[in-house]
Simulated assay, not measured.
Amino acid sequence: MSSQDLSFIPDPDADSISSDVASFGGITVSTQVPTRADGSLELGSITAQSECTLEALKVALERAGSSMDRVMHLTIYLTDMADRAAFNDVYQRFFAKPWPVRAAVGVAALAVEGMRVEVTAMAARA
C-alpha cells in the first residue's frame, strides 16, 4: 500500500493533531466531537452535544464524498452511560433503518472537560 492509496482531510481547527476524515479504498473514517458550525465546542446538555456531534459527522462525511446513510459502523463514547437514552433520541433523527452497526462505550473522560460524547464512524463512499 502506498501513500497514494490513502487520503486525509485535515480538521478545520489549525491546532488539531488529528485529521477530520481519512479514506482508503472506498471506506471513509471520521471521528467527531460536539463542534458547532463556527468551530466552537458545545458543552451544554447531552442532547445539544449529541446534535452538534452528529451534525459535525454529517458535514465531514459529505465533504469526503459520503453521507450518513452510508455509515456502516459507529462507535459512541459517552462519559456517562446514563446519557445513552438521550443520545439515542438524537441518533434516530440522523439515522434510519437499516441501522449502522454500533457500539456505545463508557469512558472516564474525553479530551475537553465537560465534553460528554464523541463518535467514530466508518462509511462507504457514495
Rank of each mutant, 00 (worst) to 15 (best):
N88D: 14
T28Q: 09
F87K: 07
G114T: 12
T35M: 12
E55M: 10
A85T: 13
G65W: 00
L74K: 02
S45N: 10
E118Q: 15
K58C: 12
A85Q: 12
S23R: 10
E113H: 11
E51K: 12
D11I: 02
C52E: 07
M115H: 04
H73Y: 15
G44Y: 11
Q32R: 11
D11Y: 03
Q49E: 08
T53R: 04
Q4A: 13
A123H: 01
R93E: 15
L74P: 00
S19I: 00
G114Q: 05
S7Y: 11
S19K: 13
Q4Y: 03
S18R: 11
L41S: 09
D5H: 08
V71A: 02
G65K: 01
T31F: 01
F87S: 07
S23L: 04
V59Q: 07
V105T: 13
D15Q: 12
A103K: 14
A104T: 13
A123T: 02
S7T: 13
A37G: 00
M122E: 08
P34I: 05
V112Y: 04
V59N: 07
V90L: 11
V29N: 02
A64Y: 03
Y91K: 11
R63S: 10
E51I: 14
M68Q: 04
K97E: 14
D13P: 00
D15A: 15
M68W: 02
S66C: 01
S7N: 13
V33S: 15
V21H: 04
D80V: 03
T120W: 03
L78T: 07
F87M: 15
G39D: 02
C52F: 00
T28S: 15
W99N: 05
R125P: 06
I76E: 11
R125H: 11
Q92M: 13
E51W: 05
L57I: 02
T35A: 14
A37H: 10
A108L: 04
A109V: 07
A104Y: 10
Y77D: 09
M115E: 11
R93F: 08
A124D: 07
R63E: 09
R70M: 09
A86C: 06
I76C: 14
E118A: 15
E62I: 00
E42T: 06
P10V: 03
E42Q: 14
M72G: 02
S67C: 08
A123L: 04
F8D: 00
P12S: 03
T35V: 14
G65N: 03
T75Y: 04
D89G: 09
V117M: 05
F94R: 02
T79C: 11
L43M: 06
A14C: 02
A124Y: 09
E55Y: 07
A22D: 05
H73E: 13
F87T: 10
D69V: 01
S50G: 10
V90T: 12
D89A: 12
E51T: 15
V33K: 10
P34N: 08
T28W: 00
D5T: 09
Q4K: 12
M68A: 04
A126Y: 04
Q4C: 07
P12Y: 09
D5M: 10
